[in-house]
Simulated scan of single mutants.
Amino acid sequence: MGVNVQSPMVSVCVITYNQESYIQQCLESILGQKTDFDVEIVIGEDCSSDKTATRIEKLAETNESINLLVNNTNLGVLPNFIRTLGACKGKYIAFCEGDDYWIDENKLQKQVDFLDEHPKYGGVSTNNRWFFENENTYKNSILNEGEISFETLSESNQINSQTILFKKELIKELDWMKTLKIGDWPLHLLVTSQQPYYRLPEITTVYRVHSGGVHSLLKEEIKLRNRLEVLIAVLEHVELTNERKELLNESIRNTLKKLISHRPGDINSIRQKYYDFGGTFLNTTLLKSYIK
């Protein structure tokens, strides 16, 4: 569906599932970008049960830049994400999930210009605005401008992923991510293990928090378990220096300590995993300083 743009500079990766109410705003915000280069929009439509695909097909009829990938069965978030990334042909890749949208028509141009002028960086992000749909309120997420290293991201994911643009050449085989529940954070760690990111100060995007959202509404215990899976997978599959391996080991150990407060019944298995990743003395009294 749609005709691929020839040799696009940027591919925008869009993941959709049952987002009929939001997809129009998302795609129009991408189509409205002002650039002096070609942009393709690669949409991984994961067998939605609503009319998301129909809305996309209607837009694709008049926009050759849209490349709609339709799945006959629901692949799931990460397999669909990886499949869509693999279909991107651009030198650079940007993200925008189907329920989010961009508010700066020069977002892509600014980012491409920055990376072309600063080749030491593997990607460039911006600041973001949160939209809390139930309260109909907005909140700006302002983080400091500057370099974002692997070391910083190993502590926590500090990238609003709908703001990122990164070099496609820095992502290779991604099948190791398919079983994870989080896709953006391990991808950011993969890229920054090779070249750092840079954050620009502008607010260019809106992240929508709503009842149909996935990560933003998860319980803390599930977030910790998902975090643990990501850290272990990156440690096993990404080429890292010994210093960076130890940073991930430390993050893994701290995550295991926090998990005990949520599942005290699992203390023996969590304690054993803690020891497996280089932990030493551990008891519940010591844990109090880690549980917040």
Rank of each mutant, 00 (worst) to 15 (best):
M1E: 12
V3Q: 14
V3A: 07
V5H: 04
P8H: 08
S11E: 10
C13R: 12
V14T: 08
V14D: 00
T16W: 02
Y17I: 10
Y17C: 07
N18K: 07
S21W: 01
I23R: 05
C26E: 04
I30V: 14
T35A: 01
T35L: 03
D36N: 15
F37D: 06
I43C: 07
G44C: 02
S49C: 06
D50S: 09
A53I: 01
E57G: 02
K58S: 15
K58V: 13
E61T: 15
T62I: 07
N63C: 07
I66P: 01
L68R: 04
V70P: 00
N71W: 04
N72W: 07
T73V: 14
T73D: 12
G76Y: 06
L78I: 14
L78A: 08
P79W: 05
G86F: 00
C88I: 04
K91F: 00
Y92Q: 01
Y92C: 07
I93C: 00
D100L: 00
D100G: 02
Y101N: 02
N106T: 12
K107D: 10
V112R: 02
D113N: 15
L115A: 02
N127V: 04
N128W: 05
F132V: 08
K139C: 10
K139H: 12
E147Q: 11
E151T: 13
I159L: 10
I159S: 03
N160A: 15
I164L: 15
L165E: 01
K167E: 15
K168S: 10
K178T: 13
I182D: 06
G183M: 03
D184C: 01
L189P: 03
Y197N: 10
Y198V: 01
L200I: 02
I203T: 14
H210A: 07
G213A: 13
E221R: 15
R227S: 12
E229R: 08
V230Y: 04
L231M: 08
L235A: 08
R244M: 04
K245M: 08
K245N: 05
N249C: 13
I252T: 14
R253M: 05
N254F: 09
N254H: 14
L256G: 08
D266W: 12
D276S: 14
G278P: 04
G278D: 06
G278E: 04
G278V: 04
N283E: 05
T285K: 12
T285D: 11
T285C: 03
S289P: 00
